[in-house]
Amino acid sequence: MVITATAAVAKSQGTGNITSAEVLKVVGQVFDGMRAADSTMVRSAFAKDAELYTIFTDKEGNPVLHKGSLVNFLNAVGSPHDVVWDEPIWDTEVRIDGNLAQVWTKYAFYAGDKFSHCGVDAFHLFKTLEGWKIFHLTDTRQWQDCEVPEEIKDNHNNN
């Protein structure tokens, strides 16, 4: 069983589940687009000038904050690759105040059946006239000591 963003609605916090479901639909669109290698689908989830960051620890044990590029991310998603990129999520929390939403979720990233890394995705969304758009995304990355739920591991080991 793969845990998807829409399955996390029951754990959402903030205003009603309808709004939470709308926010999670946008986040889920990013992951669906990654699996489909569809950069257009992914792009439509983001605001025009969205910022992307990654936080990790380098080989010397130093914390690193790396600023990414939405264009580079979209190019990577849309470039041909031999395996499906899958990023199942769990322990998802949604918080909403008016036109601001935050989604905090644990994830594991798989290239095909091969585990790559895990961490947390922290999305900030703004409710525009066209609907919710991601304007900021920061993820953390760990390459070891990941506590991925067994059902997610099993899904990737049985394909």
Rank of each mutant, 00 (worst) to 15 (best):
M1P: 07
V2T: 09
I3W: 05
I3Y: 04
A5N: 12
A7W: 09
A8M: 07
V9Q: 07
A10H: 05
S12H: 08
G14E: 06
G14T: 02
N17H: 14
I18V: 10
I18G: 09
T19E: 11
T19P: 09
A21H: 01
E22H: 02
L24F: 03
L24D: 03
K25C: 03
Q29T: 01
V30D: 08
V30E: 07
F31P: 06
G33F: 00
G33H: 00
M34Q: 06
A36W: 00
D38L: 00
S39H: 03
T40L: 01
S44H: 01
A47S: 06
K48T: 05
L52G: 11
Y53M: 05
T54G: 15
I55N: 12
I55C: 11
I55E: 12
I55H: 11
F56R: 08
F56D: 09
D58V: 09
K59M: 15
P63M: 12
V64D: 13
H66L: 15
K67R: 14
K67M: 14
S69P: 07
L70N: 06
N72Q: 13
F73Y: 07
L74A: 04
N75T: 07
N75L: 06
V77L: 01
G78D: 05
P80M: 13
D82T: 04
D82K: 08
V84R: 10
D86K: 01
P88C: 01
I89S: 04
I89W: 05
D91R: 03
T92E: 09
E93H: 04
V94R: 00
V94K: 00
R95H: 04
D97M: 05
G98S: 01
N99D: 10
A101W: 00
A101C: 05
A101Q: 01
Q102M: 05
V103A: 01
T105W: 07
K106T: 15
Y107T: 06
F109L: 09
F109N: 08
G112R: 02
D113P: 05
K114H: 08
F115S: 10
C118P: 12
V120E: 15
V120K: 14
V120S: 11
D121R: 13
A122M: 14
F123C: 05
H124N: 11
L125I: 10
L125K: 09
F126H: 11
T128R: 05
T128D: 08
L129P: 10
W132G: 00
W132N: 00
W132L: 00
I134T: 04
F135H: 06
F135Q: 04
D139L: 11
R141F: 02
R141D: 02
Q142K: 14
D145K: 15
E147S: 14
E147N: 12
V148C: 15
V148A: 15
P149Y: 11
P149T: 11
E150K: 12
E150S: 13
E151V: 09
E151N: 14
K153H: 13
N158G: 02
N158I: 04
